[in-house]
Design a protein around this nucleic acid. Structure first.
Lengths: 208, 208
DNA sequence: TTCTTCATGTAATTAGTTACATGATTGA
DNA sequence: TCAATCATGTAACTAATTACATGAAGAA
């Protein structure tokens, strides 16, 4: 019996959700939306595909049902799935990987106008403020006992705190960078760096 | 004349490098390694592919040469390329997108042991410390006038500062999370959350 | 009864990575 | 002259996204 495609981080992320509770694909998508998707974002269609892989490996079972005439599948983790998950958790896992288009634009701002760079930074800050508001709303829900899966709060709060710190860091950086760019001439290519700024940044890096 | 595949963020990221100076593919790979790759990571082979797309669009030209008997191509941006780049910079661009396997493991730590979670957090902290050291070394090189492309220092430092703050944030979070997990019982699933922690995190989020 | 949103899935396409192959250069 | 590293590229593969199609349920 030939093993189907190997399991990826995405597979285990989905399996982790199923370890919380059985879910239909749509419910998985909602969980992805509120939490997991912030640090392991995947398109909807993936969520239809991965559980099938888990089933093929015996790590989950799919129970077929119906909503009216439409087919609908609810997936649940198996004991083998829990074992596989435990094995996966025993490996440390990769560090955060960033993909930040806005920063690419800032880093090469000399090819555009000063106003472009300021707009980009404003958008970055707005992004962080908005994400933070969502995140804060979730934290407040937990505080009033309305959070999802309160039995998992000790774990959830670790991820929530990461996001909190992350959004705050992004916003503060955008504010700082804005003050820098405001000091530039109209042509960003003519901007010269005050060496004192390098010292300041080096100091910020001196925590290890 | 049918247009070849549309330009992606990756295309413009490469084009931005070519705006700094003409580069061979290998030199592009080195630039990717030292800076751009930290916030727009791509595999080597992409760097052989994308410039061809840029040439097909008239945004770059490739000059064929040789190293001994081996062919070698050096790419340079064209005036049309500079114009396209300026157009791209006028759009704000996407916010940072995170993909963080270690955090997935922490967020679902109840399926493994407490020691697993602590190991994962230690690996995350080590990751941040190492990246920070690289980044700091680059900052110091600029300070002593040995940085690459000193004319671009005003732009480079903005990206450098982002990474500095980012690595510091990751390390500090890992340290904090470690103290939390140290307070857990042997079975992470039994860990209960002190509501005061929620308040603390909410306060950290209250900057907007 | 019609519009909107919730819900369920598949198919086509593309972006990106891994693996491979090999020449050139340098230093032991 | 051999090994290690620098350098240049292609081919095969896969992970992931976008686009599409449509049924069910609830609100106006």
């Amino acid at each position: 019996m030939s093993r189907p495609p190997a399991l990826s981080t995405t597979s285990f992320a989905i399996l982790s959700l199923l370890a919380v509770s059985p879910f239909s694909t749509y419910e998985l998508a909602r969980q992805m939306d509120r939490s997991l998707g912030r640090f392991w974002p995947r398109a909807q269609s993936k969520l239809y595909e991965e559980p099938k892989k888990l089933v093929a490996h015996g790590l989950a079972v799919g129970e077929a049902g119906r909503t009216g005439r439409r087919p609908r599948t609810v997936y649940a983790i198996t004991p083998a799935g829990r074992a596989a998950l435990a094995g996966w958790l025993a490996e440390p896992g990769a560090g955060p990987q960033l993909e930040f288009e806005g920063l690419v634009k800032v880093a090469f701002a000399e090819n555009g106008s000063r106003a472009d760079a300021l707009d980009t930074l404003a958008a970055v800050r707005a992004w962080a403020v908005e994400r933070n508001a969502d995140n804060l709303a979730i934290a407040r829900a937990y505080r009033t006992g309305e959070g999802d899966y309160p039995g998992r709060a000790a774990q959830s709060v670790l991820a929530g705190a990461f996001l909190t710190d992350y959004y705050a860091m992004v916003a503060r950086w955008a504010e700082w960078a804005t003050t820098q760019v405001e000091g530039w001439p109209e042509q960003p290519a003519d901007a010269r760096l005050d060496p004192a700024v390098l010292d300041e940044v080096a100091r910020r890096a001196d925590w290890a």
